[in-house]
Write a protein that binds this DNA or RNA. Sequence first.
DNA 1: ACCTGAACACCGTTCAAGT
DNA 2: ACCTGAACACCGTTCAAGT
Lengths: 233, 233
Amino acid sequence: MASRKSRPERRQEPLSRERIVAAAVELLDTVGEGGLTFRALAERLVTGPGAIYWHVTGKTELLAAAIDAVITPVLAGDDTGATPQEAIRALALGVFDAIDAHPWVGTTLAQLPRTPGKSPMLRVFERIGRQVQALHVPEAAQFTAASALLSYILGVAGQNAANTRAARANPDRTAFLDAVATAWRELDPVEYAFTRDVAGQLRAHDDRAEFLAGIDLILAGITAGRADGRTGP
Amino acid sequence: MASRKSRPERRQEPLSRERIVAAAVELLDTVGEGGLTFRALAERLVTGPGAIYWHVTGKTELLAAAIDAVITPVLAGDDTGATPQEAIRALALGVFDAIDAHPWVGTTLAQLPRTPGKSPMLRVFERIGRQVQALHVPEAAQFTAASALLSYILGVAGQNAANTRAARANPDRTAFLDAVATAWRELDPVEYAFTRDVAGQLRAHDDRAEFLAGIDLILAGITAGRADGRTGP
DNA sequence: ACCTGAACACCGTTCAAGT
DNA sequence: ACCTGAACACCGTTCAAGT
């Protein structure tokens, strides 16, 4: 086995936080959350696991950085010329699509605290809040309105990640939805009356449109009548 | 060391799925998600880790069962005599309080697919849907309305779990909120104009009331005008 | 300063062997 | 039928030693 010693095909670039995070995103996209391992990452980067710790404090930070890398481009959009409603819809759809493309983001995003400055969570909150102000929501209700929109987006994100995971086992999407619809229709007619009723709507169902409709529902609630929402005396 | 051999104080009951799940909930409550370990669980139940696998297929099922055990009592409430709005608020608050008491539920709940029958997720969805029907929402919009409410509840659940985790490091709640408010006010005035504006509302802030206000916002959107929500041409 | 890779202290899960 | 506990194949993280 006489192997010619030659310059390797691609030169070994030095390790860097950037390269590590990029490799982590790739790993998460291809093998999912369970696949992100310091050993697997090290192999991809042609080093030992210890080397990664020189650039990153640990797995928590690595995951946060990966999420940041996916969400940041979403926030790059420009809102000038759009109505507040349009801007909110565009932002929400951006987050939705990003999570659709990277399901692992949906799993963890909702678990990020809004507290640290510059966190992707807080940046989305800020963007939403500006549009809420543009809607002329009274000051006292702005926090509530922005929080409600954010919570809804995060909730859908989580559900979507769960659905993607569940659907991945099934090859084709329509077949999967049909299977769920059938299962729903076979539920107990008394205990699950509503679910059975709406089972039929599942087939024609478009996740993206459904998501947007929910956003519009909240926007309608925000702009309708008294914005503090409570119905009490 | 002459130790008298006597009947142990509490008789060793036989292992059962019930006892295992109860111990898991206790473990999750006291040591958090990271603390739920087959070894720790086995120690609490005075057995080896292998014994647990006779009653439970694995960790995923165990966690699902633990969540089920927490959510099921919430669904026991009776809605008779309440308006649909009141019933939805009561249910939502029930879920909120359950997650407040067991933060680990919030972390995982949103990740549960709605697909398997009898899943806690689906049962909450069913309960919400009935009240949506009672609100006389047109059939075509019922799915959207119920999904929106559920997604919002799940989103808040996740955020709440994250906040609880973040706050746990800090001893007292007001001090923690003050610290966050201060941090928010020190953010860049251009990049974080909205967040800085609402920082002041954080101190007086009541998570439960805020959550309910969000529910009311969505309810207002559902009942206001055209229930399919879209504003298009 | 940055990288290496063996070593440590854990995991979930399996399974032969016991009762 | 049910339990035991050693063993397997992993983890994240650390750290002495190298360059």
